[in-house]
Design a protein around this nucleic acid. Sequence first.
DNA 1: CAGTGGTCTAGACCACGCC
DNA 2: GCGTGGTCTAGACCACTGT
Lengths: 253, 253
Amino acid sequence: MSEKFDAILSSANLPQSGGLLYLRLRNLIAQSIDEGFLAPGDGLPSERDIAQMTGLSRVTVRKALGQLVSEGVLFQRHGSGTFVTQQVERFEQSLSTLTSFSEDMARRDMELRSQWLDRGIYAPAPEEMVILGLAGDEKVARVGRLRIANGVPLAVERAAIAASILPDPQSITHSLYAKLNETGHRPVRALQRIAAVNLDQKNAALLGVAPGSASLRIERTAYLASGRVVEFTRSIYRGDAYDFVAELRDAKS
Amino acid sequence: MSEKFDAILSSANLPQSGGLLYLRLRNLIAQSIDEGFLAPGDGLPSERDIAQMTGLSRVTVRKALGQLVSEGVLFQRHGSGTFVTQQVERFEQSLSTLTSFSEDMARRDMELRSQWLDRGIYAPAPEEMVILGLAGDEKVARVGRLRIANGVPLAVERAAIAASILPDPQSITHSLYAKLNETGHRPVRALQRIAAVNLDQKNAALLGVAPGSASLRIERTAYLASGRVVEFTRSIYRGDAYDFVAELRDAKS
DNA sequence: CAGTGGTCTAGACCACGCC
DNA sequence: GCGTGGTCTAGACCACTGT
């Protein structure tokens, strides 16, 4: 198990030559993975063993490992060990056609699961009143889901819809858009705002990745043909699992 | 200076009650900022002072501060101190029209500067040969720039163009697209792939943010009217400074 | 229960900024 | 020169996982 490491680590004479110790160890491990000495799923020696092998303190070893964990190269399981991350399959989503997550995955032949985080009628937050154009006494339906494809959590999706349009959020079984379709409230147009954010602890736990991992926050405002706002959704997509693809055309043509 | 902190920190009796120490300190500071006790630009006491005030070790204080730094709430300057982050102005970019960074900023009346990272003719990498459709002996022009708007570094942009289209990259002064326009090689269509990634150390240093900060990596492949690929650009945009906006339409309409 | 990662301490020295 | 953050050490104890 750790003979492999003895070769990798001792050959490099870490304490010699210039540079910061934790960075040299970090690069050594990263390089070993790049060159295939360490394969995805492989376990590393314990932090204490690495410290002894390299002659570094455990704190310094932890700093090197911690940086690779925050970059998504390694992951650690309390009480179990440190391992090389399995590359997850990346998904693509178009930024020009308007489809829901469920429809998108069905087209790809993925096994999609959802875990309900929230599904009910609430008094609207000020933000929701403004965006959805709610009257003072109107309620809002909130639908929050964790989206899981082939067993991998991909996104946290929280939608808000006027209760007058969706009075019974509990009745949604699969697709929100399918439900809106039934009642003639399917949106025909949407604006999406995309930003990169570091995951907070709560969303990181839901998505099964390290806090601070890069993710895409997408705020979508969807409109009916009449121009009325029908849906406002704020989603968090795992950065390591999702690509968004857009086609641009020359403004002058 | 630190009387304010004495009140904040001592009133909370950190070492008492449950929970992890570094998280309690982290939350205490975050809360102080949320509630306005600490304003953007304000300095915090030194790590050693905070340690003494709270009765924690400096390592633990650093762990609490480090988490807030990685979230972009605080920033630290070596030899100077720890400060509350100034909110940077966010920029929006459309994902439906094809414009270059220079043109985009000029429209906004921003003072744009570029710092050259790279500008020359090279032997192409395999990836470049495939994407740009280069012959075996054809060279590639690389144009790498750090984009700075109103003094704030916003993006790292690295473009690759066939040398037969852009034989003299040194002659570019401002806009790459303006240059391509001159020689009749302006792209009319582009595909963009957008992903969220954690910044590595090098790009983080260029953009002036903490390593690990969330950023948007955008790979753009641009096409001439003839269908030939004219440009492949890989850019890194600061996540805290950029929103991308897309308009979606129903596939069925 | 043995081994793992997670937290925490009390020190030390270095590198940088500012006066 | 003095104070700041940045690195590093040698230990300790806790919490979780596996057998």
